[in-house]
Computed example of a mutant assay.
Amino acid sequence: MMSAISSIRNLGPAFEAACAKAGIHTAEQVRAIGADATYAALLRAGTQPHFIGYYVLVMGLQDRPWNDCKGAEKIALRARFDAIKAEAFDQGHSEFERLMNQIGVLQPTKKGQRSR
């Protein structure tokens, strides 16, 4: 039997709806692909990046309270989040667009694409 994404600790209906837009429909899918791939899929589907949303997912998959992320662990998760965000937004862009993104000329739009 397949479980709802909201059955994962810390995750509710809004997260479940965002996952559905990204083609992820069950808790089993989230567990199978993991936090990083799930969050990358959400970003590519248009979800605006938010660090707390990412670490809430990570903590939930570990069956920990969302606010249990602290210190060095939180710093390491921030680095992973930044890498996921950069990769998700850089897909499909030219080298020039990636450089413009790095210096802050291009900004994310609602569809997850970059524009001036």
Rank of each mutant, 00 (worst) to 15 (best):
L106A: 04
K110I: 14
L57N: 00
G23C: 10
V58M: 03
A45R: 07
M1L: 11
V105A: 13
D68M: 04
A22G: 11
D36Y: 03
F51H: 02
S115G: 15
D90R: 14
C69E: 03
S3M: 13
R78A: 09
K70S: 09
R44I: 12
L43V: 12
F96S: 12
A41H: 07
N101I: 07
A79K: 15
G71M: 00
D82R: 12
G60T: 03
A18V: 09
A35C: 08
K74F: 03
A41D: 07
E87L: 10
A27F: 04
P13A: 12
I33T: 08
S7L: 01
D82H: 12
S115D: 13
R64M: 00
L99M: 13
A35F: 02
W66R: 06
L106N: 07
R114D: 03
I24C: 11
A22K: 09
F89P: 03
E87H: 12
T109L: 14
A83S: 09
R80W: 01
I52L: 11
K110D: 14
I5D: 01
I24Q: 08
T47E: 14
I8S: 01
D36E: 15
Q91K: 13
R9T: 10
I75N: 14
L77K: 04
Y55S: 01
G112E: 11
I24G: 07
D68C: 08
H50I: 11
A17T: 13
D68E: 14
D63R: 04
H25L: 13
R116E: 13
R64P: 00
S6G: 13
R78N: 14
Q48C: 10
A88G: 05
R80V: 08
D90P: 07
